[in-house]
């Protein structure tokens, strides 16, 4: 296997919260009829979870399924397993109108950790963090680019952006998490 490098190679920043590019993360876009039994079965086999409800994330054994749109899920799996799981999904859904495709390399993932993690994000996204559910995935605008975020721990958020703008997103997070810029 050749050298594989995530967008920012695990860059970190210590501000009033800790920011880290999370390294390589396996991601699979699965499109299809989310209500179908075949798809539910395939998801169960692939990541061990049920099909999440609207805007929800479900996790089992380190793998997750995220609701992205009415006909699209994003599956989080270990990076090295992604091609195999995508192939397996394609195989098991071959009779269905569905698409499973490995998008691990098209994305960058960030973790924002600390008691005031939501403050760093509150400056970048028009999202009401107070009413964001614990298992809710919110796709929105991160300053000038698209992104998805969710609470990945008691004091932690995970944010996903496109890979090409990872440097921009890191710059945004460094700016919004700078010590001294805490909100009240």
């Amino acid at each position: 296997m050749p050298d594989t490098v995530s967008a920012l190679n695990g860059k970190t920043y210590a501000g009033f919260v800790d920011i880290a590019e999370a390294g390589l993360q396996g991601m699979i876009t699965l499109r299809g009829d989310l209500a179908s039994a075949a798809l539910a079965k395939a998801v169960k086999a692939a990541v061990g979870t049920k099909v999440p409800d609207q805007r929800r994330i479900v996790t089992a054994g380190g793998k997750s399924a995220l609701w992205m749109s009415p006909d699209e899920l994003l599956l989080l799996v270990p990076y090295v397993e992604a091609p195999g799981i995508a192939a397996q999904l394609s195989e098991s859904l071959s009779g269905e109108h569905a698409m499973a495709v490995n998008v691990s390399d098209a994305r960058a993932m960030f973790r924002i950790k600390g008691a005031k993690a939501s403050q760093a994000l509150q400056k970048l996204a028009p999202v009401d963090f107070a009413s964001l559910g614990d298992d809710e995935v919110r796709r929105s605008r991160i300053a000038q680019v698209a992104g998805a975020l969710w609470k990945s721990g008691p004091q932690e958020f995970t944010l996903v952006s496109f890979r090409s703008v990872a440097g921009y997103v890191m710059g945004l997070l460094e700016s919004s998490a700078r010590p001294g810029s805490e909100i009240a």
């Binding site: 499109r31 495709v101 998008v103």
Partner: peptide, 8 residues
């Protein structure tokens, strides 16, 4: 179905 794989 479509998927934008430009950055993949």
């Amino acid at each position: 179905h479509t998927a934008n794989l430009t950055e993949q």
